[in-house]
Amino acid sequence: MTDDLFAHPRLAALYDVLEGERDDLDAYLAMAEEFGARRVLDIGCGTGTFALLLAARGIEVTGVEPALASLDVARAKAGAERVRWLHGDATSLPPMEVDLATMTANVAQAIVDPGDWAGTLDGAREALRPGGHLVFETRDPAYRAWEGWNRSASHSVRDGVESWVDVLDVSLPLVTFRWTYVFPDGETLTSDSTLRFREREEVEADLRAHGYTVEDVRDAPDRPGREFVFVAVR
């Protein structure tokens, strides 16, 4: 089930404003250049920010996203015609052969069901050319990021919309939380999310089990010491 933050039209339209500067994408752009990627699959592309950054560099991009409202936002952006947009997920991709597949931000952790996670790894591998790279990030459970997810730490007002987050349940490896949004017209919307906090060893074992070679596990430049960035090769 897709979170309302991405699936509700009013929240999807606001997503880019709420996220602000996406400095976290700089590392992915650098890796696309590092690996000489000319064809990229952006899994869980959301409102298309990363896909459009790649396309602006002349890279052939396919963005796949299960939330139609987010895809509608992406398709309405300047330069959207340069990207191939697909409604769905990595388990139902058409035939392709890309140099790089990515899952930025929370995408990998939002795939909480083991069967869906296995299907995503298989789908990404099938889409990659031999020697192609899969890159994604996941938070290090040892950092216990959820302990900072509360109203006092997260409250903000952007474009007149008040928002904050509260943790609903911690049953590791799953953490469930709720974002609340209060609009200037008085409407209040909420979006519940669950993330899976996988240990580094678990992710490496999953990758090997699905036919990848783990080439590197890097630190996230924008969140040093808090996340693992996995670089795997088909």
Rank of each mutant, 00 (worst) to 15 (best):
A105I: 05
L207R: 01
R178Y: 07
F177P: 00
V40T: 04
V165I: 14
D219W: 10
G48K: 00
V135C: 10
V83E: 01
S154A: 12
P141V: 07
G148N: 15
R234C: 02
W149C: 05
W149E: 11
S152L: 14
G46K: 04
V64K: 03
T91D: 05
E199R: 13
E201A: 15
F177Q: 07
W164D: 03
R22G: 00
L189N: 07
L18N: 10
I43H: 00
T176K: 11
P184R: 10
V165Q: 07
W164A: 04
G132P: 01
M1H: 14
C45T: 14
F228V: 01
Y181P: 00
V83F: 02
T194W: 06
L53C: 07
G44A: 11
R208E: 15
S171Y: 01
M31I: 02
T91I: 04
P95V: 11
P114V: 12
A145Q: 12
T91N: 09
W146D: 04
P184I: 09
A124G: 11
D122I: 05
R144E: 15
L168R: 13
R234N: 14
A78M: 09
F177V: 08
A90V: 02
V231R: 10
L168Y: 05
P95F: 12
A232L: 08
V233A: 08
T2W: 00
L100C: 05
E60T: 14
A101K: 01
V40Y: 06
A51Q: 07
H210G: 07
A12Q: 05
A118F: 01
T213I: 11
D140K: 15
G79F: 05
V40E: 04
G115R: 12
A37E: 06
L174F: 14
R57P: 01
D42F: 04
G48M: 06
S154F: 02
F230E: 01
G63L: 02
P224C: 10
V233S: 10
K77R: 15
E215C: 11
A51D: 06
C45S: 15
S152K: 14
I111M: 11
F35I: 06
V175M: 09
L68K: 13
L68M: 12
H133W: 08
F183V: 07
C45I: 06
A74Y: 01
P184D: 10
A145F: 09
D99F: 05
R223W: 08
D159C: 04
G79W: 07
L189Y: 03
L29W: 03
C45Y: 05
E21F: 02
E65D: 08
T194K: 13
V170G: 03
E65F: 02
G115P: 01
P9E: 12
D113L: 14
S92A: 15
